[in-house]
Amino acid sequence: DGCIQFTRHAGDVLLNFNRLRSRNILTDVTIQIDGQHFCAHKTVLVACSGLFYSIFTDPLKSNLSAISLDPEVDPDGFAILLDFMYTSTLTLKDSLVLVTMNTASYLQMEHVVDTCRRFIKSRE
């Protein structure tokens, strides 16, 4: 007895989720920030962000199809983190790394915050 481990399965599944997002297939929530709209899948948001986990596991909010985030949140930072959720790649532009870190903190994505902090320190 034994098993076959498909080593690239996780990446293949995530790539398909990102293809679904880009084609707006089965997306079930729109995140609104400062007039910008981002379509996504609640399951991916919940899997990656503590904030969305607490929102969408609340029976009173789990059926919401649109969420407006605090206008303090930077849409560019959110876009970088949403791409990260769907690709495992975190874009780090010097001009946006602080915004990305603050947005990750707001979304309760602590591991990303730590990584950004280490990146900033390494650049100092």
Partner: peptide, 21 residues
């Protein structure tokens, strides 16, 4: 599953959803 007669398959595991239909 590590170790118990595990065969590692490096190839694609599932279909690829096209960028557009």
């Amino acid at each position: 599953y590590e170790g118990v007669n595990t065969i590692k398959e490096m190839g694609r595991s599932i279909h690829e959803i096209p960028r557009q239909e």
